[in-house]
Structure formats: C-alpha cells, structure tokens
C-alpha cells in the first residue's frame, strides 16, 4: 500500500453568482514510503493548492468537488477536524516558504516547539524540552540549548528556516510537505537547507513532497517529478528521466529555457506567451496556444495522462537528441 494516494482530485472556487472555476482539474499522485517527489510549475499552476487539498486545508469558499486523498489507508477528505489533527502536523508535517510568517513572533522558539509537541503527545514539559533541543541539534543549530529562549527575530533567515524544519520533525512524521522552502533565502542558505532536508529524509526514511519552481533544486533532491500546468499534471516520472529526456513540450521548453542549457551569449530558448489564468482556459490542452507542436486535436480535446505524459504529440528521446 502506498503511503499517500491522490485520485482525480478537483478543487473549485465560486465565480460570480452560480459559476465555479477549477483550480485543480483532476490530479493523481502516488507516493511510496520514504519517496521524494518534486511538484514543479509556475505560479497559478495549482502546486500549493494541491498541498492544501492533501491536508484538507482548502478554505471556504473553495471546496474539493471530486476525488480522494488516502494516507496510509485513511481517507483524509472524509475525516472530521478532530480526526485529521491526529495526522496533520503529526504524521504529515509542513514547511512553508517564509519562516518569518510561519513562526509566531511573540513566542520563544522553545515555547513554540514544546507547544507543538504537547498538542500531539501526552508528555511532560521537561521531556518536550529535551526532545526539542534534540531536534534543534539535528538541524545543526549552533548552541541549541540557549537558542530555545531566543525569539524568531533574533535569528537569521537560514536559522529561522532550520527552526521551522526542526518543528516539522518534532513528531517524527512519515511525510513532509515543503512548499517553496528556500525561495525566500539566499543561494548559499538554500544549498544548506536543501542538503539538510535531503539528508534528514534519507536517514529517517521520511517521504517528501517538495513544491518548487526551481528545476535545479528538484534535480538535486527528488526521485520523482510531477510537472503541473493550469491545474493539471502534464508530465510525471522519474526525476532523472524527465530532466534528461522530457516528453511534454512544456517540460521540454522549461528545461531548454534555462540559461545553463544554452551557449553563452546565444539567444535563450523562450516559450512564447504566458500561462492562461484558470478563469480563462483555452479549450482542449491548456498548453496548446503556446505549443509549437499543437494540432486541431489539441485544440479540441484534453489529452489524457498516458505513460506519464498528457500530450497527443509527446517528444521522443530520439527527436530530442536530433534537435
């Protein structure tokens, strides 16, 4: 049994008096125990929406209109708030983009950690304190014991994100969902934090869903990729396979457009146009207006996800190398 299984997930928001727009339009996902998955896409593609939907955190007026989320055999979407709290923040932890927003500015680090632990475990404050220091040490925070009394504003951005990771690890989760965990940080700090997350996941057999727009980070950290576009998964598969030989024209374009994949001074490959807003999607494949391989078929109907690609005219490995 997989650790997490998402089937045909749809999320919709009301628009106008009667209408609805779909932010997620049928997403499937299977994550095995200890597996690391990268969810890649541009802003508005539905990556964060997917994370929120998995955790049953879609706020009114949005709602899940269809589909299921199963975690270790439990149906998360059908659970009461009380039941899901045993899983969310406990067996599934979250790391968000901006540590300054995640942490409470008026509580010390120690207080926030102890509070989190006591919410999920019936243990003494002394024991919670000991476990918290242990986790701060695990994420390589210097002089962890004295940092327990520090407030978030007293720490640098990198250390703050380390504290957030320590909090996420407190309950020994089986799955961590990290939503752009390093986007607000500098490159050297990003490298530190991502290598830390990678090591912790490997050593403790923790599964990871890493949401990001950075293909380099995904290539470094994950084993599988899911590329999202306009609320749908357009390509999914092993990270190495997709980075080396992407099949969906959008994935091909994203990789080709990276400066490191272009000769110095040469014109960069560019995908024309921009992603359509979910309120105004074209018919058929949502990518067809920007796609150089599109045909009438693409304009008429949405290609199904077959063998990891949702495209009528996927690139093949041979075609890719011939170019």
């Amino acid at each position: 049994m997989p650790l997490l299984e998402v089937k045909d997930l749809h999320v919709a928001f009301p628009k106008g008096k009667k209408g609805e727009v779909e932010a997620l339009r049928g997403v499937d996902l299977v994550l095995e125990k200890g597996q690391r998955l990268g969810v890649v896409g541009e802003s508005g593609a539905g990556k964060s929406m997917l994370a929120f939907a998995i955790l049953n955190l879609i706020a009114e007026p949005g709602r899940v209109t269809q589909g299921s989320v199963t975690f270790d055999g439990n149906d998360l979407l059908g659970m009461s708030e009380r039941q899901i709290r045993r899983i969310r923040g406990n067996r599934i932890s979250m790391i968000f983009q901006d540590p300054m927003v995640t942490l409470n500015p008026v509580l010390s680090i120690g207080k926030q950690m102890i509070e989190t632990l006591k919410a999920h475990r019936s243990i003494s404050t002394r024991e919670a304190h000991r476990l918290s220091v242990e986790k701060l040490n695990l994420v390589a925070i210097p002089s962890a014991e004295s940092r327990m009394d520090a407030y978030p504003h007293e720490l640098s951005g990198g250390l703050r994100q380390r504290v957030v990771i320590a909090i996420a690890l407190l309950t020994d989760p089986e799955l961590i969902i990290a939503d752009e965990p390093t986007t607000a940080l500098d490159v050297t700090i990003q490298a530190e934090i991502m290598s830390l997350i990678l090591r912790l996941c490997r050593e403790n057999d923790v599964a990871l869903i890493l949401i990001t727009h950075d293909l380099g980070v995904v290539a470094e950290v994950t084993e599988r990729i899911m590329i999202m576009y306009a609320g749908k998964c357009v390509e999914t598969g092993r990270t190495r396979d997709i980075i080396d030989a992407p099949k969906h024209p959008y994935a091909v374009g994203l990789l080709k457009a990276l400066p490191q994949n272009s000769a110095k001074g040469a014109k960069l490959y560019q995908i024309p146009g921009s992603m359509p807003p979910i309120t105004n999607l074209p018919t058929g494949c949502p990518y067809h207006p920007r796609c150089e391989r599109s045909t009438d078929e693409c304009r008429a109907s949405m290609p199904p996800l077959t063998q990891g690609v949702a495209c009528f005219h996927p690139m093949h490995e041979q075609a890719e190398t011939a170019q």
Binding site: V187, L198, G216, A219, E220, Q260
Partner: peptide, 13 residues
Amino acid sequence: AIPSLEGGSFDAP
C-alpha cells in the same frame, strides 16, 4: 551553492 541539473551536489552536509 548552485543546484545542478545533474544532481549530487547537495549530498554533502
């Protein structure tokens, strides 16, 4: 610190 598409450079702590 630059993540590389080849991977492997974030393996060391």
